[in-house]
Design a protein around this nucleic acid. Sequence first.
DNA 1: CTGTGTGCAAATGGTTTGCAAAAAC
DNA 2: GTTTTTGCAAACCATTTGCACACAG
Lengths: 145, 145
Amino acid sequence: MPPASPEKQVFTKYLEENGLRQTRHRMLILDSFIANEGHRSIEDIHDNVRKADSRIGYTTIYRTMKLLSDAGLAREVDLGDGMTRYEHLYNHKHHDHMICTECGRSIEFFNAQIEALQDAASEKLGFRVQDHRLQIYGLCGSCRS
Amino acid sequence: MPPASPEKQVFTKYLEENGLRQTRHRMLILDSFIANEGHRSIEDIHDNVRKADSRIGYTTIYRTMKLLSDAGLAREVDLGDGMTRYEHLYNHKHHDHMICTECGRSIEFFNAQIEALQDAASEKLGFRVQDHRLQIYGLCGSCRS
DNA sequence: CTGTGTGCAAATGGTTTGCAAAAAC
DNA sequence: GTTTTTGCAAACCATTTGCACACAG
């Protein structure tokens, strides 16, 4: 048997520490989530997980994705399309998003200077930063022509 | 008669240009909106406008706030409390928000360097910026102690 | 008058919840 | 066997829409 993926180890540990059970459904959802990159909606994940077990319901996806977020494996992102999406957090650098208002595609980017300035600006206002989100809206390369 | 406020002039012009009518309800909503600063929900505005005319319904607030946004007088902000809020845009400098995860209060801030870096980072990725939103989550001065 | 604006109630759509049955331990 | 988890359906809640009536131009 191959060693469990680090994400699975993190999740298992999280479940144990919180007195939660390690169920087959939760593990299938984790499997599907780590096997697919991107900004995935509950519907996306549900469709994908159903290939492994067609009896898994929407509700369980909602509840499990919340657990994965708490466990630090997933991050909720709001791309402005009216539904919560989830992206990988484990071993993924923090980043922000540029969202094309024409085609809806989103580009991930990271800028260390912006990050540093945010911290500095916050500290100056007496604010202790926990997290932040930056979305830039505009036209992507293909749509601006 | 005092001259109409600049906001009223902008809105009137917007309505004319788009073949829309200048109704009493729309003007009352604009009055209420420009008379109160802050991040106001539909419910806030509705409660306030009803003091002037108790027959104005929720629906009209929704529809009119959308018009005010289109006219460039209001901006939708998402403070993560599950409802759309509106803030003034006319003669208000662009700014971003720090949101306290403890008390929910939000602080407005502006940092020219961050703005410039965003534009530069976008341009480098072939992105033409139209707008952007930055929310920093953390603990405000009163809550961090 | 003619056509737009409005209020009400009902519909919508993503998300949450109550509860009995199923699964984990 | 006891307790947690799950699926289903119903509830929720902010927002939108259909429609008959009210109002602006």
